[in-house]
Design a protein around this nucleic acid. Structure first.
Lengths: 336, 336
DNA sequence: TTTATTTACTTAACCGATTAAGTAATAATC
DNA sequence: GATTATTACTTAATCGGTTAAGTAAATAAA
C-alpha cells in the first residue's frame, strides 16, 4: 500500500503538486472549488503529510528532545508529564533520551542532537557530568533549557527549585525536632542541586551552633546494593545519626529497609526527611516527611519557555531562569 | 553558524557530494586517500548528517514511537526504560506519546503516526479504548507491538504477563489467608488485562465455592479524588470486604489512606494485595503484598521484537506473542 | 595493439514537501 | 480599446542526503 503523497493527489486531480500543497495550506492563490476538491480527496485517501519532507525544507522539525538521567523516578516522570503536556498542546513531538547517569551516553546523545533532528533540548544533566564541552557545542546550535539538574556554566534558562533553602529547611526541621546528629545523604557533588542542598544543610548547622560537628555527609552511588550497605554502615556506626536528610529520593527505600533490619525506630530513634515526589510518602511506615519538588510544574515551565523561544523571534532564554519553590510536607517520620 | 552539510564538505574538498556521501559510507568506489581526506574534514568541521534527509530518501526514520497511557507510573516507566535501552543499543530513537487515558488523544497520536514519522510503534492502549479502527489503520502501514494493555483484535505481537493466573493467584492467596469477602478493584472492562484478571478472580472464587457471593467488583476511575471516595464508600459499607485485590496499582494510596482514615487495620481487618511495581511496596505501612509485573523485561522484549521485525526481512510479528509471568510477593498486608 | 575491465570519480534523479518566480486567462481601470 | 491587475494556476528550485547511471583515465586481458 503505497503512501499517499501530494504527488498522488495531484495526479488524480490533474493539478500540480504546488497547487495541491497550496490548497492544503489554504492559500489565497487557489480557488475555493479546487481547495474543496483537494481537501475531499485528501480526506478520502487519508492523506497525512510526511513530516520529514517539510522539516527538511523548513529547517525545523517541530520536535524537541528531552534528555533525562532516568524515567523510573517520580520526579523525572512527573516532569516529563509536564513537558509532554505542553508539547502536545503546541503541536510538538518529544523525543526522549535517557542517560542512565552515564556521561558517555550523555555525550553521545547530545552529539546526535547536533544533527538538526530536534529544534530544542530540555535537559537535566547526569550525575557524572563534570565537563561541559558537549553541552556548550549543542547550545551553540539550538536552544536548550535546563531543569532541576542544571548546568551553571551554560548561559540559558534554568528551571530549578529552591534547593539551598530546602536543604536549610529540612535540616532546621530536624533540629527543631530535637536531632543532634544530622547526616546528609548526597550524590555527586558536581551536581549543582547537590551542592546547593548541602550548603543549606551546612548553613543550618552553622546557624544552630553545630559547625564543629563531625562530618556527616554520605556520598551515595546509583547502585541499590551499595547504597543499602552504606546505610547499614551508617546506622551501625558507634556515633549513629539521630536525623537524616536524604537529598536523593531513591535512598528512601534503603533507609527504611536498613532501619527495619536493625530495629531502629523511625522517628523515635532516628528522624528522616527525604527530597521526594513519591506518591507513597504518606502511606510509608511511618509516613515520610518530604521536601516535595514541583516536578510537573518545573517540566511544564521548562517546556513553555522552550516553545516561546522556538516561536518568538526575540526571546532570550538566558533571561528566563526561574525558581519554583518546593514544599516541606511534615509527616510522621520526623515525629510530631 | 551555518550547518555543515555534505555540500560544504564537497566544496572544500573539490569533490562532488556523491563522492563525499560514498566516502562517508565507506564505499568501494572511493579511493582510500579520498576517504581519509573526507573523514578528516568531516571530523574537523564536526559534521553530523541530517537524519531527515536520509530518512526521506530511505523511507525509514530509525525512530520508533512509544505510545503509553501514562509515564508517572512505575509499570510504564520501567517498561519505557526497557524499551529505551534496546532502542539506544540498536541505534534507534524513541518518540514518546502519552495518551493520558484519553481515547481522542490516542486517535490523534496514531493518526499522526501514519505519516511515516516512525518505523514502528510500541503501544499500550488507553483505558477508554474500545474501538480499534485507528489502530488497525496504523497497523496496515507499519509494524506494531503491544505490551501489557494489548489489543486482542489486532493480529501482531503482544507481550503480556499472566494476568488470568495472577488474578487467580492473588484471590486464592487471600482465600488462603482466611478472607471471606474479597473485593476486586478494576478499571475499564474493555481492557483485556482487566478482564483477564477479573476472570482469574472469579474462577478462584468459583473453585472455592464462593460463586454465589455478592458482586464485589469496583470499577475505579483515573481520578484520585473519585477513587478515594469510592474506597471510603466501599470500606464504610455494611458488608465491608475483608480482602481486596487491586488490579490497578495507583489504588494503593487510596486504599491505605481510606483505611487509615477509617481506622481499619491492614491486615487484621482487611487484607490487601495490589498489582504493583512500586519500589515502595516493602516499606509501606504495612508492607504491601504485590503481584509484581516484569515491567522492564516486557518493555525490553517488546522492543527487541520490534527491532527484529524492522531489521529482518521475513519476521512475522503475529507469531511472536509472549507471556512473561508476574510474581506474587507476599508481605505483611496479607497477614502472615 | 585493440578491446575489456577496473578505478575513481561526476551527473542527475529522487525522497515529499514548500515556495519564489513565471504564465495564461479573465476582470478591472483609464 | 489598450493597459494593468487579479485570479488560478504551473514550473522549477530547494532542503540534505543517497544512489543508479554515466564517464574519463588507468590497467589488464586478448
Amino acid at each position: 500500500m503505497a503512501n499517499v503523497t501530494i504527488k498522488i493527489l495531484a495526479e488524480q486531480l490533474n493539478l500540480s503538486t504546488a497547487a495541491v500543497s497550496k490548497a492544503l495550506r489554504d492559500s489565497h492563490e487557489i480557488s475555493p472549488l479546487t481547495k474543496q476538491r483537494v481537501l475531499d480527496l485528501a480526506a478520502s485517501l487519508n492523506y497525512v503529510p510526511h513530516p520529514y519532507a517539510g522539516s527538511l525544507r523548513e529547517r525545523k522539525s517541530k520536535t524537541i528532545a528531552v534528555v533525562l538521567p532516568e524515567v523510573a523516578d517520580s520526579f523525572f516522570s512527573l516532569a516529563l508529564n509536564g513537558i509532554e503536556e505542553v508539547a502536545i498542546e503546541k503541536g510538538y513531538h518529544a523525543l526522549i533520551y535517557l542517560t542512565h547517569e552515564s556521561f558517555e551516553r550523555e555525550q553521545a546523545i547530545l552529539k546526535d542532537l547536533e544533527s538538526g533532528r530536534v529544534d530544542g533540548v530540555i535537559m537535566s544533566v547526569s550525575m557524572k557530568t563534570n565537563t561541559f564541552e558537549h553541552i556548550k557545542r549543542l547550545q551553540q546550535r539550538i536552544p536548550m533549557v535546563f531543569f532541576d539538574r542544571v548546568c551553571e556554566e551554560i548561559d540559558t534558562a534554568k528551571i530549578t527549585t529552591n534547593d539551598y533553602e530546602c536543604g536549610y529547611t529540612a535540616t532546621q526541621h530536624l533540629i527543631d525536632r530535637g536531632c543532634k546528629k544530622i547526616a546528609l545523604l548526597s550524590v555527586s557533588d558536581s551536581l549543582s542541586i547537590s551542592s546547593q542542598r548541602m550548603k543549606g544543610y551546612q548553613q543550618a548547622l552553622l546557624d544552630n551552633g553545630r559547625a564543629d560537628d563531625a562530618p556527616r555527609i554520605v556520598a551515595c552511588s546509583d547502585d541499590e546494593a551499595t547504597n543499602y550497605a552504606l546505610m547499614m554502615e551508617l546506622l551501625r556506626s558507634e556515633d549513629r545519626p539521630d536525623g537524616i536528610v536524604a537529598t536523593v529520593s531513591k535512598m528512601t527505600t534503603e533507609i527504611y529497609l536498613a532501619c527495619m533490619e536493625l530495629k531502629i525506630n523511625i522517628p523515635e530513634d532516628i528522624k528522616v526527611v527525604c527530597f521526594s515526589n513519591d506518591a507513597s510518602a504518606p502511606i510509608l511506615n511511618p509516613a515520610l516527611t518530604t521536601i516535595t519538588q514541583p516536578a510537573f510544574e518545573m517540566g511544564k515551565l521548562a517546556a513553555t519557555l522552550m516553545f516561546k523561544a522556538l516561536q518568538k523571534k526575540y526571546f532570550l532564554l538566558s533571561d528566563q531562569s526561574a525558581v519554583i519553590p518546593s514544599e516541606l510536607r511534615i509527616r510522621s517520620s520526623t515525629g510530631h
